[in-house]
Amino acid sequence: MSLTAHGVSAGYRGQQVLHDVTITIEPGETVGLRGPSGSGKSTLVRVLALLHRPDAGHVTLDGTQIDDIRHRVPSSRRTQIGVLFQSPRAASDPRLTLTDIIAEPLRATRQPHEQRVAELADRVGLTADLLGRRPHAVSDGQLQRACLARALVHRPAYLLCDEATTMLDASTQAHVAAVITDEQHQREMGVLLVSHDTTLLTRWADRVASITQQ
């Protein structure tokens, strides 16, 4: 049982940014991943999130090799991996309210959502007033809390955080970390933390892997 990238090389339009990277995230553990800008950290997250096809290597999810990406992967598998993106603003549909943003993955998979949205909104600290607003009317921190609630809404087995707390103030950063850690304690969720902040990684992660610029 793990989410693993095996010897993954990946890039864009012929330009390779990742070379033969292997990384494993076990259930319940927090893996840190550090590396300089442009070293391919976000590309590795996209490969692990089944959003980007690697040029070489493959991803296994709980022992099953996944050869497809995006919509070709069954919805039930895609929802096992939650992603918290670096920019909450880019990762939120500007037309939806925060409630709709959190509820959307449940609506898309035809599951009841009201109770789960209320529970998660409470956990990430979003008030009823904020939940009715659209992304342009809330701060980055408030929006990232909504994105965290959305990433957790399907109770994913693995959560990939791509520089997810970099843009946030210290208190929001602490709150986001607390919610993620709490979720891990409750149900053994595996977490990949991508950051170039070494202090944050050494404090939060169980182990830290490095990726170097090629």
């Binding site: 995006r70 919805s75 991996i81 959307e104 898309a108 998979t109």
Partner: peptide, 9 residues
């Protein structure tokens, strides 16, 4: 991308 990982068709 977020919608795809959320399971949307």
């Amino acid at each position: 991308d977020a919608a795809i990982t959320g399971g949307a068709s």
